[in-house]
Design a protein around this nucleic acid. Structure first.
Lengths: 189, 189
DNA sequence: TGATAATCCTAACGAACGTTAAATAAGGAG
DNA sequence: CTCCTTATTTAACGTTCGTTAGGATTATCA
C-alpha cells in the first residue's frame, strides 16, 4: 500500500547484483550474499530470476546496452573538440549504479567475465563504433590519407579515458580531457 | 634422471594456473581442474604452493612484473616513432604464456581480479609510467605548454593498443600502430 | 645397503555453493 | 467467508569447493 519508498524487489536484487558481480566477478558472487544485502530470503532471487546466469545476462543485455545507447544518443554539438570533451567529461557524473553497470560491461567486453554468447553481442556493437565516429568526424577531417587513422586513434583514446573514469574510478578534469582529445584531433576544428 | 623433456612440476602447475585464472577468473578456477590439466594429483599443488591465493599472487608478483620490466628494458632507439611502434608491434609475437600473464596482470590492474594488496603494488608501478615516458620523450618535445599532455596521451594510446593485442588477442599491423602513434607524436621527430 | 629426505598419492573433511520442494502469509475477487 | 493468485519463507538436496591427514613411492647419499 505505502510501498512508494521501497523500490521494487526485483529491481533491488538487480542493483545489489551489479555491486556483487562488479566486486567479485561472476564466480565470486553468491546468490546467498546478494540475498543478504537485499535483505530478502535466498529463494526470492529464484522467484524473479530463473538462475544466476539469467540475472547476470539481464544486467549486461539490458542495463549495459541501454546505457551505451543512452550515451551514444548524446552526441551532437558544433565544435568537435568541445563535443568529445563533454562526452567523456560527463562520464564523471554518471550515477554509481550506471558506473558499475558500465564497468561490468567493459569486463565482459574484455572477456574477463561472461560467456561467448555475450561476447558475440559485444562484437556486434563494436563493429558499429568506428563507422559511427567516422560519420561524426567526417565534416572535420581534411586530408584523406590518414583520416581513418585519426578516427581509430580517437576511438582508442576514448576507450582509455572511459576506462580511467569508469573502471579505475578516477576523476578526469575537463581540461586534461580536452588537451588529449585536441592532440589527436589537431587541425580538426 | 632423464627428466630433461619434462618441465619442473612446479613450473607446469604455474603455467596451467595462468591458463585457468585467465579463462575463468580467480573464483572460477579450481585447484582440481588445474591438477587434472597438469596430470598430477590434487595435493601436489599444495605441496608446491601453500594455497590458491599464493599461487595466484606468485603469478602476478613474479611473472607479470618480470614481464613488465623485461618490456620496459627494451626501450632504446633513435627515431622516437619507430621506437614506440616497434615496442607495441613486438607484443604481437609475445609467447602465449607471456600474453596470458600480461592479460592477467591487466585484469588485476583494472581491479577485475586479485585483492587490495596486489592493487597497491600496481599503483606503485603505475606511478613510474608517466615519468619514464617523459624522460624518453623529453628530447623530442618542443613547446612546453602541452608537453605533459602529449606524454599522457601517448601513454593512454599505448594502453589501448596493448589491450587490443594482449587482452582482445587481436593482431595489429606495424602500419596501423605507426599511424596512430604518429598522430599523437606529430611534430616530434 | 639402509637411512633420510623429497615427491607424490588415496581418501576424506567440513564448508559453501546453486537450486528446489513444500509450506505459509497476504490480499483482493466472487 | 472462501478461493485463488502472488509473494515470501524455512529447510533441505546434491554437488563441488579448498584444504589436509596420513601413508606410499622415489631419489640421495653416506
Amino acid at each position: 500500500m505505502f510501498n512508494i519508498v521501497e523500490k521494487d524487489l526485483r529491481e533491488r536484487i538487480k542493483e545489489v547484483a551489479v555491486e556483487h558481480f562488479n566486486s567479485n566477478g561472476y564466480h565470486g558472487t553468491t546468490i546467498r550474499n546478494i540475498a543478504r544485502d537485499v535483505n530478502c530470503s535466498l529463494p526470492m532471487i529464484y522467484y524473479y530470476y530463473n538462475n544466476k546466469k539469467e540475472l547476470f545476462d539481464e544486467i549486461i543485455k539490458k542495463e549495459y546496452f541501454d546505457l551505451l545507447k543512452r550515451q551514444a544518443a548524446l552526441l551532437r554539438t558544433n565544435n568537435i573538440i568541445d563535443f568529445y570533451t563533454k562526452f567523456v567529461y560527463d562520464l564523471n557524473s554518471l550515477s554509481n549504479y550506471d558506473k558499475k553497470v558500465y564497468r561490468l560491461g567493459i569486463k565482459v567486453y574484455l572477456s574477463f567475465d561472461g560467456d561467448e554468447e555475450l561476447m558475440e553481442i559485444m562484437d556486434e556493437w563494436e563493429k558499429t563504433i568506428l563507422p559511427r565516429h567516422y560519420q561524426i568526424l567526417k565534416p572535420y577531417l581534411k586530408n584523406a590519407d590518414n583520416d581513418l587513422a585519426i578516427v581509430r586513434t580517437l576511438v582508442h583514446l576514448l576507450e582509455t579515458l572511459i576506462e580511467s573514469i569508469v573502471v579505475k574510478n578516477r576523476f578526469l578534469s575537463e581540461e586534461e580531457i580536452r588537451e588529449e582529445i585536441s592532440i589527436v584531433l589537431h587541425g580538426c576544428e
